[in-house]
Write a protein that binds this DNA or RNA. Structure first.
Lengths: 201, 201
DNA sequence: CCGAAAAGTCATCGACCCATGATGTTGCCG
DNA sequence: CGGCAACATCATGGGTCGATGACTTTTCGG
């Protein structure tokens, strides 16, 4: 992913023309805007403006809009994968995700796609796979026991979490939005910790 | 709403040109398509085709696309309002909603809008208000006690339910989709019934 | 210092979509 | 039977968006 990362980040004067930087700027802007507004309501021109580069560069670096979206999903799942072990506990997962939506100002592109909002079927399936890989599978494995039952419960918990992630930033549910991050996580745990054998350790 | 309903529904031969019928055909098609694909991915042409009438009639009967969407939301919340009392119990509410998404093939337009997918802010706010009116408020009132705490819990439960409603039809979470309606409701109750003082009565 | 390749800019095309108003068509009432 | 009003259709305008390719500018090795 970052294999083509430049070394001149350490040099004093960065190149004015920097393909890697432009690439990243586009990706960051895309992740932000796709996460806030969703795929359809985000235009390539918006992304270009936010990134401070020409929108036509999307074609150069990511092929097309869908390619950029896919890359945004990929990155969106990356830090989740990094925290994989922690995320096997529903409380930790909830905390991790609430923190993210709070500073992203919306559900990420990954959750958005998993909700089935976006157009391209392949993209949605990929997003859902990312969610399963990063969140559902580790937790199922940890719980163990009857796998089917365990998976049912975990999937329900994650689905609930996704609903929460989508609604909290809208502000439509006043209390849900007003609640502090910690209180919200505690409330969520109240519902699911017992069910997932995940009491405070 | 139906105040302008025609009387000739009782006459033997309906008029070939029937404004009320066209109106309703549009609304039904809109509710279906908006619910399945969302606002942006549904075109007025699609709706017109599905309804078997010219798409330009949307302008006549609902002003514009947003107006039609609003009407679809309204109707979407109508049967929920009718079952208002029952819906004060989380189990009943879950059952009611799961049944609906299963035969609608997707979350309704109301849930879609509440999730913040759609564009027009006024429309989303209206949808969210409909959800609060039909689901959150009655349950909060029933639980009573500390209103703020009660509302926090109810909002969380409804948000979770919305997430479930959005994800189950996608088929991305295999177990969640495979589960029968009754089992799914039971699972959901396992998480929230206790929290909402809603054990089997 | 030159020249080619990389990086970035710009104008434009084609597709699509909502909205509008002009234009047909049907049904009903006097 | 005549004419009007309601109903429906059609053609088109105005606008937006994604993609494309030609064009300009910068960078850097030789």
């Amino acid at each position: 992913m970052n294999s083509s990362a430049p070394h001149y980040a350490t040099t004093d004067r960065p190149r004015r023309r920097d393909a890697a930087a432009s690439r990243k700027a586009l990706l960051d802007a895309a992740r932000l805007l796709f996460g806030e507004r969703g795929y359809d309501r985000t235009t390539l021109r918006d992304i270009g403006d936010r990134a401070g580069v020409d929108a036509a560069l999307v074609a150069r670096y990511y092929g097309n809009k869908a390619g950029l979206y896919l890359a945004a999903i990929e990155e969106d799942g990356q830090d989740a994968v990094a925290a994989r072990r922690d995320l096997a506990h529903i409380g930790k997962l909830a905390d991790f995700l609430v923190a993210r939506i709070d500073d992203l100002g919306g559900p990420g592109p990954m959750f958005r796609a998993a909700l089935g909002e976006e157009g391209d079927v392949a993209v949605r399936a990929e997003a859902a796979a990312a969610v399963r890989r990063a969140m559902v599978d580790p937790m199922v494995e940890r719980i163990g026991g009857d796998t089917v039952r365990a998976r049912q419960r975990v999937e329900l918990a994650v689905a609930a979490l996704i609903g929460l992630a989508a609604i909290r930033p809208t502000g439509f549910f006043t209390e849900l939005t007003a609640l502090s991050r910690d209180d919200l996580v505690a409330l969520f745990e109240e519902a699911f910790a017992g069910m997932l054998g995940d009491a405070e350790e």
